[in-house]
Amino acid sequence: MPSSKNPAIEDYLKTVYSHTEWQPDPITPSVLAGKLGVAPSSVTEMVKKMAAQGLVSHVPYGAVRLTDAGTVQALAVVRRHRLIETWLVNEMGYGWDEVHDEAEILEHAISDRLLEAIDARLGRPLRDPHGDPIPSADGVLAREPSLLLAEAPAGHTGTILRISDRDPEVLRELDESGVGPGIELEVTDASAARILATARVAGRAVDLELAREVAAAIWVTA
């Protein structure tokens, strides 16, 4: 199997994987360019290179999809990223809104030996601070049926599984309310521009009023 010790290829693989991890639509070259902040022509050349290595499948102007080999390598990068985020929060005193950019840098530099030591030190965690599942060393990833809080009907009761880490401000807002992965909540009103819910935080009921864009960053058990 070709090895992708190239940080740029690792970024591409992780971005393609992450795009479809929580929704079904495949990523297009234009969306990939936007997410990576590069020119479309750069994406075209890199996708050709990755296809030649057997990491992605792609037809001109069509979606970019990971091959089995590409998925294996993408999950290895995802594992490094999420273990680093967990380590930074649990051991280094970082807030969960501060770790994404640090992990983006460290994921390309960390050795397999150090990653294994971090995993053991943390007690083999299954999820990172945002609730994203951490792939095992052999690429196994545990998933639960879920839905977006923004799409949950009134009366739906579930546990928060995952909160997107793309907007640190959203993470800070939720943290102030004590809301995070593992918190149980019930949607009380889903008809307005904002989602109303009651959460159980530290044994007490907390009423939440969330903008739909915030609720669209939260996944709960189905």
Rank of each mutant, 00 (worst) to 15 (best):
S4T: 05
K5F: 13
A8I: 13
A8D: 05
E10Y: 03
Y12T: 01
Y12M: 07
K14I: 07
V16C: 04
V16H: 05
Y17S: 03
Q23T: 10
P29I: 09
A33D: 06
G34D: 14
G34A: 14
L36R: 05
V38C: 10
A39T: 06
A39N: 12
P40D: 00
S41Y: 04
V43H: 05
M50G: 05
A52Y: 08
G54D: 09
G54H: 10
L55E: 06
V59Q: 15
P60L: 08
T67Q: 05
V72F: 01
A74E: 03
V78R: 04
R79S: 06
I84C: 02
W87M: 04
V89Y: 04
V89L: 11
E91F: 09
W96R: 11
D97E: 15
D97L: 00
H100G: 07
E102P: 03
E102A: 13
I105M: 02
A109I: 09
A109L: 14
D119R: 11
G123N: 09
P125V: 07
P125R: 06
P125N: 10
R127A: 14
G131W: 00
P133C: 02
A137L: 10
V140L: 11
L141A: 02
L141S: 04
L141C: 03
S146W: 08
A150H: 00
G155N: 12
I163A: 03
I163V: 15
R166E: 03
R166Q: 11
P168K: 03
L171K: 04
R172I: 09
E173W: 04
S177G: 08
I183S: 07
E184V: 13
I195A: 08
A197R: 03
A202W: 06
G203H: 02
G203D: 06
V206N: 01
V214L: 13
T221Y: 06
A222D: 09
